[in-house]
């Protein structure tokens, strides 16, 4: 042992003998794989979903406060940028939901082989994109129809 830092790499085998633990190479040496992107995307989606949910509480608070507060929130939700944020929140929630279902399946012992994980990844992407588009279109569609009806009456 030449370097004192090597002490941190001493590990034990299950029989108690000493071994030099392998060092993990830096992230950039790995070839890009979909599974690695989907893994970190799940974490990012969780953070984004949390931030969106905190904003959702503001909507709830405004509704309970009264019509004037609610009008202020509507200014945000009816603004194009606000709509973009809502669509982003939807995407984050949908992906976190899909990836969460995959995690629950893995924890229960299903679809956890490397081959299966690589098969399921593109499916998860497809389901996420499809469900997000359907949800965003139907939510904004329903909202547009309802406000048009309000104006007409």
């Amino acid at each position: 042992m030449q370097d004192v830092r090597d002490a941190l790499y001493i590990g034990h085998r299950s029989d108690g003998t000493l071994t030099r633990r392998p060092m993990s190479p830096h992230l950039q040496v790995y070839r890009f794989r979909l599974s690695m992107f989907l893994s970190i995307a799940n974490r990012a989606a969780g953070v984004a979903a949390a931030a969106g949910s905190a904003l959702g509480v503001c909507w709830l608070n405004a509704a309970s406060k009264g019509p004037e507060s609610f009008k202020k929130v509507q200014k945000v939700t009816r603004n194009p940028l606000g709509k973009l944020a809502l669509a982003g929140w939807t995407l984050a929630l949908v992906y976190h939901f899909v990836a969460g279902l995959r995690h629950l399946a893995w924890d229960a012992g299903y679809r956890f082989e490397k081959k299966q994980i690589n098969e399921d990844g593109p499916v998860a992407v497809g389901v996420t994109v499809g469900a997000t588009l359907v949800l965003v279109a139907s939510i904004f569609g329903v909202a547009a129809c309802r406000s048009r009806k309000k104006k007409a009456s």
């Binding site: 509704a63 009264g66 949800l135």
Partner: peptide, 23 residues
Amino acid sequence: VPLSGWFVLQVLRLAGAEQQDVV
């Protein structure tokens, strides 16, 4: 999981709603 399903239905019910509807 089920609560999110319920939430999606409620969002569709309340999309474009006025404050009175939400109350």
